Computed example of a mutant assay.
Amino acid sequence: MTTTAPGKTLDTVRSPAPPTRHRSLLRKLGPLPWLAPAVLLILGVVVWPVVEMVRTSLRRVDTTGTDHGAAGLLKYRKLFADPRLPDVLTWTVVWTVTVVGLTMVISLALAQLFNREFPGRRITRWALIAPWAASVLMTSIGFRWMLDQVAGVFNRLLLDLGLIDRPQAWLGDAAHAKPWLVLVAVFVSLPFTTYTLLAGLQSVPAEVYEAARVDGASRAQTYRRITLPLLRPAFLVALVVNLINVFNSFPVIWGMTQGGPNTDTATTTVFMYTLRSYDVAESAAMSVVNFAVVIVMVLLFLRVSGRNGEDSR
């Protein structure tokens, strides 16, 4: 309280202290301090390896890791001149389309089944998680042992049933190995895809189906005009994630056949890994090609999902 004149006083209101320099800087930075750990993680785990991968593909690097200087596009020319590459690319396309196609169809059927009430539904839902919870590599090795020509239980079962007269090398040639690879890949892909589609089905409001019944729509019409359109976002997510995972799939093929015999069952990812034993830079070039394909898949997904968002407005 300050006296300004005899008998008169004036309350002095103190103005707030000016913001410190530190607080002012934080205010200017906004959310950047909170995003910094994530940004650093992305730079260290994603961006830096990609940069190193591209740089390695343009160098002469031997199997010991010694850099012998720039190579330009030599390793890319060597890669595309490799006589094994056309067959590897063809099998990669067939592998990806077949596994993803079967996975989506079977998962859609399973999701619709699990979306209904039936005895034992909870147990069957839990059972479906098993392939997802187990290691993919462990599952693949388990199937390889099961199909072993000497000690495999599958051969023993077929012999006991009289379906074959001698043990078969189911993974010894590409013609027999490829269907088994597809089967195992679908088996380990079903849980994620099924639960993604199931979440999409359960997000459809029940009132929509009731309105369709009131309007006299048949089950087929309701499914085609209501269920499938409303399931489209979940379907797209499951489709793209499966495309990327199956295209980049390594444990299934490596655990069962290691891409053999020769490179008959090798996809581009497995082929890339086998190249490291002969030419590290060529292996890096194959990695760059794979990375470019994945980027194209992601861009296509973003474009389709953006168009889907515009259509739903």
Rank of each mutant, 00 (worst) to 15 (best):
T66W: 07
S57H: 06
R60P: 01
W34A: 05
V51Q: 06
G69L: 00
V47M: 07
A38V: 07
P49G: 02
S57I: 08
P31L: 05
A38M: 10
A38L: 14
R55H: 11
A70F: 05
R55C: 00
R21S: 14
P31C: 13
K75W: 01
Y76I: 08
I42Y: 15
V54T: 07
T66G: 00
P37K: 12
G72E: 12
L40R: 00
D62T: 04
L32P: 00
L73P: 03
R77W: 12
T64R: 11
D62N: 15
E52F: 09
H22G: 12
R77H: 08
D62M: 03
Y76P: 01
V39K: 02
P37E: 11
L43I: 03
R55G: 09
G65K: 01
M53V: 08
T63F: 07
R59K: 12
P33G: 00
G69H: 03
L41S: 03
V61E: 07
V46N: 14
G44C: 15
H22S: 11
L29D: 04
E52S: 13
L58M: 15
P33L: 03
R59M: 13
G44T: 03
V39S: 05
L26Q: 10
L41I: 15
G30K: 00
T64M: 14
Y76L: 04
R27A: 13
L40G: 13
E52D: 14
G72R: 03
R27Q: 14
K75V: 12
K75R: 13
L40A: 15
L35V: 00
D67G: 02
A70R: 13
R55P: 00
D67F: 12
L74W: 11
L58R: 13
H22V: 14
G72T: 05
L43E: 12
T56H: 13
G30P: 06
V54P: 01
V54E: 11
S24H: 00
A70Q: 03
A38D: 10
P31G: 03
R77A: 11
L32I: 06
I42N: 07
A38H: 04
G69K: 04
R23N: 08
P31W: 02
L40F: 10
P18E: 08
R21Q: 13
V39Q: 01
P37R: 10
P33I: 01
G65Q: 06
G65L: 10
Y76W: 04
A36R: 09
L32G: 01
V39M: 07
V54W: 04
I42D: 05
V50W: 08
W48M: 12
R77Y: 08
I42C: 06
G65M: 10
P33T: 02
L74F: 14
A71D: 02
V47E: 01
K75I: 06
A71I: 05
A71V: 04
P19C: 00
R21N: 11
R27I: 06
W48V: 06
S24P: 00
T63Q: 11
L26F: 05
